[in-house]
């Protein structure tokens, strides 16, 4: 027997974990993704407060009641309400750092939407900036948010702070 203490502590062991999941989107997310497959961003309305959620999971988080089943198409243009400049690479991202991760309030929606901003110098990224989604060619659309590669600036004046202050 060797003297284990002389070899020092075991500092690393390899224990790979691989689990496969079959994800079911549910009714609300299915409605949203079907819309994305047709180039539309579909919101769903709370039956109590009337707020419209885009990429709804099926509930109004405020009232805990179901959204839908009818859908409301919202714009693919909106207002950037918050952002962060990301400088750390990640193997799961399609864009190279540095880039801006953004929270967008789409026109006609009451909930914000996370995506990436490109086609814009990073020092110009700011709250209130008007942006629009950039879609991949129609013939490549699937029922995936990858249909939108990124958002880019619109040539419009910034939105007033009051128009998005509830969504920070």
């Amino acid at each position: 027997m060797s003297d284990e203490s002389a070899e020092g502590p075991v500092e690393i062991i390899q224990c790979p974990v691989e689990l496969d999941y079959t994800y079911t989107a549910g009714q609300a997310t299915t409605r949203f993704l079907r819309g994305v497959g047709e180039g539309k961003l579909l919101g769903q309305r709370c039956i109590v407060c009337g707020k419209i959620y885009v990429a709804s999971r099926g509930a109004c988080p405020i009232h805990g009641v179901p959204t839908g089943p009818e859908t409301v198409e919202v714009s693919d243009k909106g207002t950037l309400v918050s952002f962060s400049i990301v400088r750390i690479p990640s193997e799961n991202l399609s864009v190279d750092p540095p880039f801006a991760a953004i929270s967008v309030l789409l026109d006609g929606s009451d909930s914000t939407f996370m995506h990436v901003l490109s086609d814009c110098p990073l020092e110009e990224v700011r709250m209130g900036m008007r942006v629009e989604a950039v879609w991949i060619p129609k013939e490549e659309w699937t029922t995936s948010l990858k249909n939108i590669t990124h958002f880019r600036p619109l040539d419009e004046p910034d939105a007033p702070y009051d128009s998005y202050k509830e969504h920070l």
Binding site: G26, Q27, G58, G64
Partner: peptide, 16 residues
């Protein structure tokens, strides 16, 4: 296997 509803959609009517 609940194919049509996600976790929130299963839970919400029960809580209600």
């Amino acid at each position: 296997r609940e194919q049509n509803r996600n976790e929130v959609e299963i839970l919400m009517p029960v809580v209600r």
